[in-house]
């Protein structure tokens, strides 16, 4: 466990120094600050639009950080040749992959809290109020990013940084729309396609379980089942991906 935490800590420290993280954070800050422009053009819907814009930006930048930092997480080790010193130590592939996964997750948790604080700050400045109910969405974001983190780590084990970044981004969008895969099977009525689409429906992660943005913006009640589903789905799926990743990583050859 100690080894995992040391790797996680190092991953976090390295990621913090990453220029990409800084660039994304600055752009995120500027965009959140710019939400002021919606007030005069929102036709009476400034409060709703600023809230929607704020939580969407927090999510978008979370996704970008996980994908851009996560997709290079193993590649950087190889590039800097630090992978060889790790390999020479008694660290199993599962410990290494889990450490990387937790380090990246630690980073995203910090960034999410920071972005939410910035969002609330501008919300107070522009709307003269802070909607605490919106914090519910943070719980769902954190489990969404846990799963996305595991997915990016998994893809990075056998893909180049660029490919895993693009595939992760595509998967993130598709994973929000898995419901339509089922609808497609009913519309197409082609047995082979139906089997394929059904397979994709069950294999791809279903990110819509984390999408409660409309519920929080409209202050609708959130059931305990939604919290439990987000928690259990994310943890179970991530565990499976991490185990697969460690298996793939153990078979990787570094030349």
């Amino acid at each position: 466990m100690n080894k995992i935490l040391i790797i996680a800590e190092n991953t976090f420290k390295e990621a913090i120094r990453d220029k990409i993280l800084l660039s994304i954070a600055i752009i995120g800050f500027l965009l959140l600050a710019s939400s002021r422009i919606f007030i005069p053009i929102s036709i009476g819907q400034a409060s709703k639009i600023i809230k929607d814009f704020g939580i969407s930006l927090v999510e978008i930048f979370g996704v970008l950080i996980v994908i851009f930092v996560g997709s290079r997480i193993f590649h950087q080790e190889i590039e800097r040749k630090t992978i060889f010193s790790i390999m020479s130590k008694p660290v199993s592939s599962l410990e290494f992959v889990t450490g990387k996964f937790l380090g990246l997750y630690y980073l995203i948790v910090v960034v999410q809290f920071l972005l939410f604080a910035i969002f609330f700050l501008f919300s107070k400045l522009y709307l003269r109020t802070i909607d605490i109910y919106l914090l519910n969405v943070l719980y769902f974001f954190l489990f969404e990013f846990l799963l996305l983190d595991a997915l990016v780590i998994f893809l990075s084990c056998f893909m180049s940084p660029l490919t895993s970044g693009i595939v992760s981004l595509l998967l993130f969008f598709i994973a929000h729309l898995t419901f339509y895969l089922r609808t497609l099977t009913q519309i197409l009525k082609v047995p082979v396609l139906a089997v394929m689409l059904n397979f994709l429906y069950y294999v791809l992660p279903n990110f819509s379980v984390f999408n409660i943005k409309a519920t929080v913006v409209y202050h609708l009640p959130i059931t305990i089942n939604s919290y439990l589903l987000a928690f259990s789905y994310s943890i179970l799926y991530s565990l499976i991906l991490i185990i697969f990743s460690s298996f793939l990583y153990s078979r990787k050859e570094f030349v």
């Binding site: 709703k48 639009i49 999510e59 993130f172 969008f173 729309l177 990110f207 819509s208 409309a214």
Partner: peptide
């Protein structure tokens, strides 16, 4: 409906502004 990727609300807001314009 099939391409929002979970960002339905913000897209609706942008379309609301566009409709106003």
């Amino acid at each position: 409906k099939g391409t929002t990727g979970g960002f339905d609300l913000i897209l609706a807001d942008f379309m609301w502004i566009e409709t106003g314009s």
